[in-house]
Design a protein around this nucleic acid. Structure first.
Lengths: 82, 82
DNA sequence: AAATATTTGTACGTATGTATG
DNA sequence: GCATACATACGTACAAATATT
């Protein structure tokens, strides 16, 4: 066998891509709130820091917006793209 | 006493601003390597995550560049500005 | 070629702070 | 005052990449 293309699948990236796909497919509509981060982390079985790393990437891509002490919400499609 | 203007002085921000100042003043010249992050965190008496948060801000401002398994280095002034 | 040292990257779980309602 | 939710901070462990011996 030849060299495999090694693309490590870091947890924070798996979570990020999962949500990215669900948002871009429309499954998660604009203004939909994501579950609270601790709760979501618990559901997914990842640490808080890991989940926050993932949502940080979502914010950087413009997919979600986080409002302190309110929640994290799916953004309008027009607000997206880096 | 009247209301004080409360501006919280988060640790990661203190560290960030300390290095930002030292870089912009020229005390830390371009290509100077910063101490290894774990070592630096220990010296400053902060947690690794806190130091990494600070260096992440430095990277975002273009003040430093981090090369995995090599180190974090002060950038040329021309590469800066947000 | 292999082992070692150095350095950044990822991941964990918990505690406390801050802001809103 | 209380509940909820994001933000900061801690300390530790292991993984991955690079360079040196």
């Amino acid at each position: 066998m030849t060299e495999e293309q090694r693309t490590p699948h870091y947890l924070y990236r798996v979570v990020f891509e999962q949500f990215k796909a669900r948002i871009e497919s429309g499954e998660l509509a604009p203004n939909t709130p994501l579950p609270a981060e601790r709760r979501l982390a618990a559901e997914l079985g990842v640490a808080l820091g890991t989940l926050r790393h993932a949502t940080q990437l979502l914010r950087e891509e413009g997919l979600v917006v986080t409002i302190p002490s309110k929640g994290t919400f799916v953004r309008e499609a027009s607000a997206r793209s880096s």
